[in-house]
Write a protein that binds this DNA or RNA. Sequence first.
DNA 1: ATGTGCATGTAACTGGTTACATGATTCG
DNA 2: CGAATCATGTAACCAGTTACATGCACAT
Lengths: 187, 187
Amino acid sequence: MVATAVSLRYFILGLLTQEPMSGYDIRQLLDNLSWLIGSPSCGSLYPALRGLLDEGFVTMDVEAHQGRPPRKVYSITEPGRNALQGWMDQPAIRGTLKAFLMRLILANRFSHAGLIAHLHSRRAAVAGYRSGLEQAVVAGSQPEDSGQYLALDYAQAIACAELAWLDSTLERLSQWSRDAGKGIDRD
Amino acid sequence: MVATAVSLRYFILGLLTQEPMSGYDIRQLLDNLSWLIGSPSCGSLYPALRGLLDEGFVTMDVEAHQGRPPRKVYSITEPGRNALQGWMDQPAIRGTLKAFLMRLILANRFSHAGLIAHLHSRRAAVAGYRSGLEQAVVAGSQPEDSGQYLALDYAQAIACAELAWLDSTLERLSQWSRDAGKGIDRD
DNA sequence: ATGTGCATGTAACTGGTTACATGATTCG
DNA sequence: CGAATCATGTAACCAGTTACATGCACAT
């Protein structure tokens, strides 16, 4: 009853903020992003669209062509935008990397500040995770159970890399926004 | 019909290779590992045990205590060991980090060679993933769609970190096994 | 008496997958 | 003629989650 991640639904909703699209369009777009979040292959796409429609987060216009099946073009509604905003504002729940990436892709369509906030919240989550790992190292895992030890080491390495990326990116973004603030948006 | 990851089932099976355990024992063990793979909190644990029992991968002995509910102690069977081996031998399917970590934890209970193979297969998977990301950078994503660009960059950073860890760990392990081969197991 | 720990489980739901089903159009 | 592309969807299944249900023992 708490967070209800429901990534795909909201991600689709986010994609629709750019322009109205048909299910087919969305699928192709998702296929392009498959390296990041994996294509959900129609079996989950169409039900998701149906769900969004039922909740009133999108409207549907049928573009009938003769012969060819009619394109059903979906557009986001005001309630849809609100729901999406609500989803975006949710703090990044730990472990859901995919959800983070989805939001990251969508984030700067909203606001620069939102993007920054999103990165910060991720940073906090990862930092917490890493400190948990450190405690686990100190506590249990003797190096004799090297499986556990390896897994721990691996997870720590990843977490450190994430933190490093987040820090450098935040630095870069804040610098960019400082420059933009001064009106020196050369690029 | 292909891979059927079914992580938890097989992970439990792997834990049982060390010693017979009751559901309760397993749960506590999993709780200890929660920072890595997240505790599955009985709702999935007991059904998993039931499933393993139905498939003949474990046997169950009931230790009746008066008063206190009886401990049901599960032991792995020969078919269970075979099934587990089959699962371990599956190449690490991309994206399933958790499955990889589970196998990593279990791997060296089997054989040193298996562990190495496991790491190599992960390495191949991650390398493939990264090259996919690189292609995606070259192809689509103009820096204007900075959301996509950021996500891409992030994923690449992680992938690189993974590769670096895998390489250094493989190096370390092969050195260790070389030393052991020479009988100079100083540590 | 009350709550914490041991020890088991069920039921309903969720988010997703695979594989299948439909049907017209256009290209080789 | 057959295959690929456009375009929609359904049905069955799967792994896992949350929340609930049970019940005894022992300590406060």
